[in-house]
């Protein structure tokens, strides 16, 4: 396995499910050592991405049917946690690394693989800290927040041979629509979830000036280079795409 890190740019494929399963396909390649550890920035396209264990909600199927009936794609992530809305204005990051020791260290892994994100956002003037923001989307103890408001939602998966830390950054997404879509899903699924707009913020709101996704990706890549070392831009292998196409069937709801 190469000691270098691989970097993969935002793929705007407009195929949400395929975008989501790429994390898993890359991770399997990382685990077997055929590709280096990878940092990836991506935008899956308009969809609702629910957590791996959300299917236990009392009326999960009804909620899925309701979302689909409005022409919105719904996918199930490899990670746990609550539903996340995706559209233009949201950027995802994934850090996929081999799992070399048996030590689990969830908080340590979050800190290690979020450092580049924090450095990159910091270089733009956005100071973030770990905080559990109640009332924000997909809340958890390793959210990144600015002045107590949630900016990035994260999730972590450890399986044999690999670790994935991935998350969603609010760039300048429409929060009203996000709140409406997520609330609707949980309402139909039979679990009252109240999201509050004032608990969330976006990169553009914090900066006060518009920023393109390209510029943001550039800053974040710099941040990860400082944190992890050189990132070499490389195409994904054909076998990674093939594996993703196979896995896609499992996550489309």
């Amino acid at each position: 396995m190469s000691a270098l890190w691989r970097f993969s740019k935002a793929e705007c494929l407009n195929d949400p499910a395929l975008n989501y399963v790429l994390d898993r396909a890359i991770a399997e390649h990382v685990a077997e050592g055929s590709v280096p550890a990878t940092v990836r920035f991506w935008q899956p396209g308009r969809c609702l991405a629910v957590g791996r264990f959300e299917s236990r909600l009392p009326h999960f199927q009804e909620a899925v049917q309701h979302i689909k009936s409005q022409g919105i794609e719904i996918v199930q992530r490899v990670s746990g946690g609550k539903a996340v809305w995706q559209d233009i204005g949201y950027l995802n990051f994934s850090v996929i690394a081999p799992k070399q020791s048996l030590k689990i260290g969830i908080p340590e892994t979050y800190r290690k693989f979020s450092e580049g994100l924090q450095l990159g956002l910091g270089s733009l003037g956005v100071k973030t800290e770990f905080k559990h923001v109640q009332g924000a989307f997909c809340d958890g103890p390793y959210d990144l927040a600015v002045n107590g408001k949630k900016l990035v939602g994260t999730a972590q998966v450890q399986k044999r041979g690999f670790i994935i830390v991935h998350g969603t950054i609010l760039v300048d997404g429409n929060l009203d629509e996000m709140i409406a879509r997520i609330s609707e899903f949980y309402e139909y699924a039979g679990q009252l979830t109240r999201l509050r707009k004032e608990t969330m913020t976006t990169v553009v709101t914090e900066l006060g000036w518009p920023l393109t996704t390209e510029d943001l990706v550039k800053a974040l890549r710099e941040g990860y280079q400082q944190s992890l070392g050189e990132l070499t831009e490389e195409e994904l292998l054909p076998s990674e795409w093939e594996r993703a196409l196979e896995l896609k069937k499992e996550v489309v709801l």
Binding site: V78, L102, V157
Partner: peptide
């Protein structure tokens, strides 16, 4: 060999 999947606050871990 993976034996069991455990979920904590925001992380899913397969334990071998």
């Amino acid at each position: 060999q993976p034996m069991v999947e455990v979920m904590t606050d925001k992380a899913t871990v397969e334990i071998p």
